[in-house]
Every structure is written in structure tokens, then in C-alpha cells.
Design a protein around this nucleic acid. Sequence first.
DNA 1: AGCTCTTCCTGAAAGC
DNA 2: TGCTTTCAGGAAGAGC
Length: 286
Amino acid sequence: MPELPEVETVVRGLRKTLPGSSILEVCFGKSDFVDDPAALDASVRGSRVSEITRMGKFICIALERDQREFAGPNAGPIHLSIHLGMTGRLTVCAASQPAPTHTHCVFVLDGGRELRYTDIRRFGQIQIVSPEKMPEFAAHLGPEPLEISSDDFLREFGLRRARIKALLLDQSVLRGIGNIYADESLFRARLHPARIAASLTKKQLIALHRAIREVLTSAIQFRGSSISDYLDAEGNRGEFQLRHRVYQREGKPCVRCRTKIRRVIVAGRSSHFCPHCQHAPRKRKS
DNA sequence: AGCTCTTCCTGAAAGC
DNA sequence: TGCTTTCAGGAAGAGC
């Protein structure tokens, strides 16, 4: 499932071919995951891609719109914001290539190309964000985990009474971390996912901050983790799944101590950890 | 504040 | 073999 490293890889792939492209029209398959498909088409039809950035797990495609074509309040730049959900894929390819099943949104480009959004489960979302709505959009998201300073990290986590795993998954605390990288970071920092953030020592929090940076940086280098359906913008698999130390390794030996990796539900999510390296917190309830 | 439960959706895997 | 059930999970919202 696409998290920060996967989305970053997709964005880097899109940057190779998409900037400067014109969008001729948008075609939908199933469109129940889009608020207003007709409005989306009207907003992007005739626009030109300027730049592509990432905000947490969101792909932001900046579009320039000619004043002559987009009159009045409809003129000016906008952002196309795309969240891949669990199974979303975004690829650029020749229109002549057969579209995979579950391709639900096609941006027809100049030069006989298409930007295709394929999403088996349709948990993703595609929306238009105007410049004036951008601050509000960004306000729902915490800092980038690769940019937050250790001081800010300590401040954010040090006082929270929630379990550390829940906080790592909370996009308003940090943007971009999902289940894979939460588990992998906690393993590397040797912290049990159910630990209360505020109960952690400064040293432990610093170790976690560092582990997050290391895991995400490494995962980006290996172009993400291809478990389930993830493929990058060029249709390639990532390789970081081969380097997972706990995620989806239930019952397999810990790479550090050979103890069997366990899986429990924390914050409503499967959480993989080594019971020897990551000590459970003191019992809070039955 | 933070927890749990529910909803959305499909396909893989388990159960019978 | 073949059908039915269960489960996974990102995010948001409800209710406690």
C-alpha cells in the first residue's frame, strides 16, 4: 500500500514525463470515489501540468490554466490532488496500450499519451484544490517526517498520551507514514507499538525519530515496498519489501535475536514486532 | 484527548 | 471441487 516512499517514487517517475503536458479531457470508469466528476473534467480540461510535488501521501499536480480558456473566477492555477488509498496506481503510458481492469480515471494527454488512475478498491481520492483552499488542505497534515527536527519531534510526541503506533499513523501528527513504515521504524527503535508516547524517554524518542528517517530514506532508495498492488509511475515494482524486518514477517525469526515475530492489533491495525527486542508496556487493562 | 467501531471496496485465502 | 465467509486496510465520522 502506498505510503510516503511509494508516493515519492511515483512522483519522481511522473516528473520525468508529465511536466509540460496538456490535459485534453478526463474519462471516468466508476467515479463514486470522486466528489464531482463533471466539475473535475471542467477544471482540468485544457490545462497544462507545471510541477509535481508530494504532500505526505498526496500527489499534487500543479496545473496552469490559460486565461483565455478559463474565464473569470475559473481562471488561474489549481492543484490536482491524488491519494492512492490502498491499491491506487498512477501511470503515464501510450493511449494505445490496453488499460488494466479497475482503471477508473483517465487523463487524456497530448502526444497520444494518458495519465491513468487504476484503483481496485477505490479507497483513493482525486480532488481539485484551488490556491485559496490549499492552506486549509495542508492544515490537516502534520509535518513531513523527513523534515521535522528532533526538537519538534520531541515536543510533538513527548506530551501525547496516545499509543505510539496510533500517533505514527495519524496524518495530522506526521504526514506520510502508514502501517509498514510505522512497524519498521518501531522495530529499529526497539519500541513496542503499544507504548504510550509520553512514557518514552528523550533518548527513546530521539532513536525513533532517527529510525523513521533511516527507514524512509532507505525505502525511497529502494523505490518503495511492493506488497499488495503497488507499482510506480512506470509500472515497476519496488524492492524495499525484501528488506522488511517485521512487517508481514509474523512467525519468522527476528533478524536480531531469532525470536519469532508476533502480530497484534494496536490502534485497529496489524502491528508486527519482536517480543524480545520490543518490550511490551506495563499492563493497562485486562 | 483518545479509544473503538463502522463504512467504503475488492480479491485472496480460509472454511465448509 | 465449489460455494460462502472472513479479512485486510487509509481515512473519516460517530459515539463513548
